[in-house]
Design a protein around this nucleic acid. Structure first.
Lengths: 355, 355
DNA sequence: CTGAAAGCGCTTACAG
DNA sequence: CTGAAAGCGCTTACAG
């Protein structure tokens, strides 16, 4: 019964067995300096007493807490679940726990959040920074996940290439008039995606970029995007930089009686949770969060291990690997060939071709 | 410059000032046993040396890590961002850090996740359990956030009442034929919401409940829900148990040319990120995550503090407070009075009345 | 008001 | 193969 347990520690196990705590430690850590027979007895006794090593004592002794920090500009980001899940998994696989800190999109709080994490003894941190912020001068290794265009970036999806793939896909479907939709021109990620989309369309294509932040500044949050109007002006496709925008475009179009994808194609980005379940299901770009998280954690752990323990324990700095992870096109039904009435239940073959 | 710092510790500060480390400790912790003048000098020196207390040493000495665990059935849940953000904030305000653990929806991994957290020295944990799971026998205080109908629940939104409010609202709008949509009949949260909705509708109402899990079992994930068919059979409203389902219903209806809310009303739950930006914006129920998180953290911290430090340090157990936090109806445009063509840009007055 | 000392639970050279 | 000892950096009675 759990209630019979006494707080077992190394000393307790040692005493119960009449051996030294050093031996117990060696046996349990499996460094092989203890005879197999004694090791066995020690392990059994540890089990029996429900021994859990004290992380505090171990951390104090070794100087390693086994904990990483995850700093997010805004936890409420719809992509956050995927990110957090992937980071947590990669960290756990590398033997680390992860402490979260939310900077609530506020630059000054980002610094606060970073400091809180340091005060809790993290050995390194992953930062997904707020647009335009630069992370410097943190007293521990830092891996930044942002966009390859961000200085000091460590890993990122290849957002530009993702845009390129979408642009080419749309071009391949015959679209020549496309509206590109993003939120904020200050975001490197969004700019990369927009640039890629433009580059992927045919050179002769007519293109127009809508920045939602600008629209909302004039008409208030959640305002209409005026996409039906664009269709009337001959645009046949809407390439957005996020599934959230794609959804907004899709429902606005449908609400105005414009059939998707028959009369207008819509594409998103990120393969967010609703992308596969809306009607029509969204064609989108997916990033491999698992690989991104693994790359970030690998770089971080390498930096942590490289730190000379004899030197300043606080040796920090941003890891600049600038490695890019490819994005993958997910073809569903919200984008179709221009001017071709498509059967609703048929998935179009991909006619991919360069502009 | 950061690079000039030597790992400053209490002893270092003490040595630099020619005082004892006990005095430095007392001065810095502000317990007031040190003269104001000396305290000042100590604080200045600490600042100058960039002193950061060692969390490991403090934890080892005091037996308190200052860290809480957050265990989620599935981080990929769209509600997770709100939850994590609120928990992180409430924990930080109470002086705790939060370590995350994802059980990936898997029951056995939930136990693993809990153990990992304990091995990292958390003083208590918040668990948002997988459907139907019961948390028992954890060696530290546990606060469960689930549904008030879940045994061992600590705090929860009042899901049943939320359903009741939606049901009454729809009844007030004149809806007599409503389809209730949920995913999984094993979920207490979903059952509470469904039960509440039914109770809120007029006794004479015709009601039908669609379980998405059943549909998908037959027709595959992301299959059509067949809502247009329901409209043809005289149903005028779709009360769903999540904005994700509401979105699915909305787009399917729109895709089939059925105008929302003119021909069919749709309601959701949780006020997820897209609820305000789709067209028409979703009428939904919002839960006050901040209050839920605060209640959970408060109960948890109380339990942690109540633990007799002289007794088993592992004294655990699930806190059963069963407190309920009211949900709030968010009226937007996706639900409207039955048979009344509404101007698209007008928000309907609430005609709330009991069945 | 200030200090000397013990001890939290580990790990790691170093001896034997 | 096993053990005695030191020490990680703090906090906390206890003396003075």
């Amino acid at each position: 019964m759990a209630s019979d347990k006494v707080s077992a520690n190394l000393t307790g196990i040692a005493a119960a067995l009449g051996v030294s705590s050093a031996t117990v430690s060696n046996a349990l850590s499996g460094k092989g300096r203890v005879s197999a027979e004694l090791s066995d007895r020690i392990r059994r006794k540890a089990m029996e007493l429900g021994y859990v090593p004290s992380p505090a004592a171990r951390a104090l002794r070794t100087g390693r807490s086994g904990v990483l920090g995850l700093v997010l500009a805004d936890i409420a980001n719809p992509l956050f679940p995927q990110i957090a899940q992937a980071i947590e998994k990669a960290a756990a696989d590398a033997g680390f726990g992860v402490l979260i800190a939310d900077s609530h999109g506020d630059v000054s709080k980002q610094t606060e959040a970073i400091n809180r994490l340091i005060e809790r003894g993290v050995e390194g941190m992953i930062v997904i920074p707020r647009r335009g912020t630069r992370i410097v001068d943190v007293d521990c290794p830092v891996a930044v996940i942002d966009s390859p265009s961000t200085p000091g970036n460590t890993v990122a999806a290849d957002h530009w290439d993702g845009g390129l793939q979408i642009g080419r896909y749309l071009a391949g479907l015959g679209h020549q008039d496309v509206v590109i939709i993003a939120r904020n021109p200050d975001s490197n990620v969004q700019n990369d995606r927009v640039g890629g989309i433009r580059a992927g369309l045919s050179a002769a294509a007519r293109t127009e970029t809508l920045w939602i932040a600008h629209l909302e500044q004039q008409h208030g949050e959640g305002c209409r995007l005026g996409v039906a109007e664009k269709v009337r002006h001959g645009f046949t496709a809407f390439a957005t930089v996020s599934d959230l925008h794609a959804l907004r475009v899709l429902t606005e179009l449908q609400d105005e009686g414009i059939a998707v994808p028959q009369l207008a194609s819509v594409t998103g980005f990120d393969d967010l949770i609703w992308a596969p379940v809306v009607t029509p299901a969204l064609t989108t770009m997916r990033m491999d969060m698992t690989r991104i998280a693994e790359a970030a954690i690998t770089a971080l752990v390498r930096a942590i291990d490289a730190r000379d323990p004899a030197a300043r324990p606080s040796a920090g700095g941003v890891i600049a690997d600038i490695s890019k992870v490819a994005m993958e096109l997910v073809i569903r039904r919200s984008a179709a060939a221009k001017n071709k009435k498509t059967s609703k239940d048929k998935i179009l073959p991909v006619g991919e071709q360069t502009s």
